[in-house]
Structures are given as C-alpha cells and as structure tokens.
Amino acid sequence: MTFIYEFKKLALSPLVLSLAALCILVNLMFLLVEYDGMTPQNQDHSAADALAAEAANIFEGYRTAGIAEFYISALRLTGTNAEHIRGKYEALQLVVDRRAAGGDAPRTYFDGQTSDFQVLLFGKLFMYLSAEVGLLALLAALLSTTHEQMRGTESAIYASKTGRRVQVVKLCASLSVSALLSVLVIGLSLLIFFALFDFSIVWNANVSSVFDHALGETKPFITWHSFTVAGYLWAAIGIGIGLALCCCLLGYACGIGARSAYLAFGTAVSVLAILYLIPRAPFMPYGSIARGAWGLNPVWLWKSSGTWFTDGRADMVWAHFETLGLCASLAVFAAAAGFAYRSLQRRELH
C-alpha cells in the first residue's frame, strides 16, 4: 500500500514528468536534425533486394590478432598490458572461427550507409538515451529519498509503524519508476527514430553486417554472440535500463546517506565524475587490469555504448564487458544502497 503512494508520488511528480518530456523533445530534435542530414538513399528497396546485396562471409579467414596488434601499436602498449589485449582478441578469434564455420555470411544494407545508421542508432542515440534515463533515474531516486525531509514530514514518518523502512519502499518505488521512465523515454524515442528511418527491411539481418570504424581502422562489428539487428536492439535496451537502475541505486545511496539534498546531489555527481575521469589519468594505461576493471563502471559502460556486446575496443580487457560491468555495477551500488540504509537505521534525527 505504501508502495503505491510512493510510486504515485514519483511517477506523477510534475518535475519528473516534465524532465522525461524534455528528454523526448531533445531526442526528437536531434533525430530531425540527423534525418535532415542523412536520409537513406534506398529506403524503398525491398527486403530481398537489401538482403541480397553484397553478401559476403567476412568472418572466413579473418584474423582478430590484426585488431589486437593495431591497438598495441597505436597505443604503444607493452608487457602485460599488451598481453591482455592479445588475450581478448584470441578469445574473439574463436568466435570468428565458429561463425565462419557456421557459414555466417553477414551482408551490408542501406547501400553503404550501414555504418552511418549503426553509429546513429547504437552509437549516438543510445548514448543520449542511456544518459537521459540514467539522469532521470538518479534524480527520481534523490527526489524520492529526500522528499520527506524537504516537506518536513520525515520525523512523523520515521516515528510511525513503518518507520525508516519507508526508505526501502522508496527504493522499490524509485527502481520501478526509473524502469518505467526508461521504457517510456527509450520507447518513444525509438518510435520517433523508426518513424523517420525505415528499418523494417533489416530486422532479421545479422548485426555484424555493419562495420565499425574505430580509430580510423575498418574492422567488422563482431559480437560475442550472434545477434540480429532486432535482437541487438533489445539487448541494448536492456543494458540501457540496467544502467538507469545503477544510477537509481547511486541516487538512493547518496539520498539517504547525505543529510541534505544538495550534498546528496553533489556526492552523486562527484562519484560519477570520479568514475569518468579516473581512467583518463596516466596511472591507468590501456590494457591494464586496473583500467579494465574500472572500465566496468556505469559511466564507462555508457561511454562505450556503441560497442556493447563486441570487443569494446582497447578500453576493455574482458569479453562481455557490458554484461559483466552491469552486473558488477548493480552489485556495488546495491551494496552501497544497503550500507546507506543500514547507517540510516542508527542515525539520529534532530
């Protein structure tokens, strides 16, 4: 029952709803600008035409060691750092060999504009979407946890039978609303995307058809698992929502851990800034375990949104970095939220 009240408090908050609407509006504007500059040349082609075009088994004879050596040379990696990168691409070679043996013959579509669409949807749009839903979730959690304090009802509620357990209910409500808002913002933005760009002809094509142009190289977009475009989209949505939930847990931990709304927000921002900036420092070189582990944080997962389910370029040391990172981030932030809640249990309220 309390859950419904807390859920309604958040879900019907004009601030949260306005912010969600603002996100969708920003995405609409972004997509209209992109549409203006990049209309596919042959959107009218039939599915058969598109799928028949340029079929080629890009995996046959492909050596991932080349990618590894490229990164090692471009980033001047040596020693164990270089070995980590080599190790990752050796593992990827097994995937390539398996898919080559299985006769996977990815194709290109959109008449050579495949990469542009790949970058637009999974690179740019998903990066914006992940940032937006993450921010919404963070603010929703902060809003929920500090609501009673802001309204002066904190003492009355903490002294009630529910007591400080209300913050557990608020966590459930924040997570639910974050997930709901993520679905709303991602769903409506994708609806706009697909209304502007016709993807119907490629839903069942393999996502590896497209090419990634990282650091000026041309290498196949190799996923650890074989995905269709539709499957990859669903998986990316899943990671996006997962990141939003991480942000929600962070907001929750800061919201009940700090005694003022402003301090809570400042702490959350500082945590995110540290997560983002630390790997840029010299003591975390490419290929190192430290950088690989740190790269599993939600901010770096967000930053590498265009490479989810692939090798993750030189930033990542391990396969399935997004799944690994998401699970690790959820666990760490859930622990932080739990710790903050435990400290609330013993905190004196003046």
């Binding site: 601030l15 500090t146 802001m150 402003y262 927000f265």
Partner: peptide, 15 residues
Amino acid sequence: TNTMSALVKIVPLGL
C-alpha cells in the same frame, strides 16, 4: 519551493 526541486531544474540547465 525546496532545494531538490531546484536541483531537478538546474541539472538540465547545466547539461
């Protein structure tokens, strides 16, 4: 009316 509602508005401004 409070710091949190101000923050929710000022954060998008910063972005």
